[in-house]
Amino acid sequence: MNNILETSCLTGFIRMCHDGWLQGWHERNGGNLTYRMTSEDVAACRPFFDETPREWVKMGVQADNLAGEYFITTGSGKFFRNVELDPAANIGIVEINEAGDGWRIVWGLENGAKPTSEFPSHFMNHSVRKAATQGANRVIYHCHATNLIALTYVLPLTDRDFSRALWQSATECPVVFPEGVGVCPWMVPGGADIAMATSEKMKTYQAAVWAQHGLFASGPDFDITFGLAHTIEKAAEIYVKVLSTGQGRIRQTITDDALRAIAHDFGVTINEEFLD
């Protein structure tokens, strides 16, 4: 292998950034993506790391279970549309220190670029999802999913209301996220408050809705995580269209017993707290 961009982890990361851009979820520098690398990923990329790693930077958050890990991350202020054109300028690989409270860049993020400003939120939620899934989850993705954001203006900002609306909008939803989705009220992006609130939701859910802001999703790999976000946004789009065409009236929908039947036949456990 002659180029770090030939590694499977970076080709997958770059493809997901491009897919998100094509969906229209990443205007300007909106959204961010991080991936917790496997030991095989690190071994494949290490020959291309900087000869001299850059300075350690404290994050203001700490996680023992992420000490010594490596992450691929989008850059602060960088545009998803430019990732495919110039990866090294727009994304990078960071190493976490042994205290689990700082990072340093070992590849990419050229010309003084830094990891996404929401890296502390991603980091805390990687810690939560690693623990909740026994290490299986590796991807955290934040996007500005248009129709989902629209729903945060008209639906009550509760886990139950959003989960039911999405489940009842598309038959595959209770299969893809049978636990439902979490919902966080509006908060200033990139701060400790939104990081803490989201990490509480992610102890239970694969995805959290950020009111008037977007979606925060997790998964074991790029395809499943992108597929989760895509499914949630498509369900939101259907719900928005139903509300628009029906002038707010819904004549029929998927019943709670039908949701239970879907879960039974597909072998998943639906969150009964959200059913009548």
Rank of each mutant, 00 (worst) to 15 (best):
M1K: 14
N3V: 07
L5D: 04
T7F: 13
H18W: 12
D19N: 13
W21A: 02
Q23L: 07
G31F: 12
T34R: 12
R36N: 10
A43Q: 14
A44C: 01
C45T: 14
C45H: 10
T52G: 02
R54G: 15
V57S: 07
M59V: 07
G60Q: 05
G60R: 13
N65W: 11
F79V: 05
R81T: 00
P87A: 00
I91T: 11
G92E: 02
I93A: 04
I96M: 04
D101G: 09
D101K: 11
D101I: 02
V106Q: 06
T116Q: 01
T116S: 15
V128R: 13
A136S: 13
V139H: 09
Y141M: 13
H144A: 06
L148K: 03
A150M: 04
L151K: 09
L151I: 08
T152P: 08
L155A: 06
L157E: 10
L157D: 10
L157G: 08
T158P: 08
R160Q: 14
S163L: 06
T171W: 13
P174Q: 01
P174F: 01
V181I: 10
C184H: 12
P185W: 08
M187R: 14
M187L: 14
P189D: 03
I194F: 07
T198K: 04
S199I: 03
K201G: 03
M202D: 00
A208S: 15
A211M: 09
G214A: 04
G214V: 01
G219Q: 01
P220Q: 02
I224N: 10
I224L: 10
T231N: 01
I232T: 07
K241E: 12
K241M: 12
S244F: 12
T245P: 02
R249S: 06
I250D: 05
Q252V: 13
Q252H: 15
L259D: 02
I262H: 01
T269C: 06
